[in-house]
Amino acid sequence: MKTAISLPTLGAMGKTGTWRVFRPIIDVEKCIKCWRCWIFCPDGVISRDDYPTIDLEYCKGCGICAHECPVDAIKMEREKK
């Protein structure tokens, strides 16, 4: 019997960035590099370079990063058409 196997794929549900209504914007000058945004991101789209950078191709715009940032370095701005 042949078993159905799914293989790991980046963007298995497509570019989930299209789900987003509010876009997170990071102010790197305020950032204290606590990396709370990175660990609490449900989609793992925040990478750990010099400062956090957000992959907007896949970010769903939940706003957890902005809500959890202790120094309010991330704000959510409504997406334009």
Partner: peptide, 25 residues
């Protein structure tokens, strides 16, 4: 501290969870 946690990721970007899902965290 949070910054010392491993950087490995085993969840690929673009999975099907709702925005703000606690399970994927």
């Amino acid at each position: 501290a949070i910054k010392d946690l491993p950087r490995d990721e085993y969840l690929l970007k673009g999975h099907a969870a709702c925005p703000g899902c606690p399970i994927t965290v």
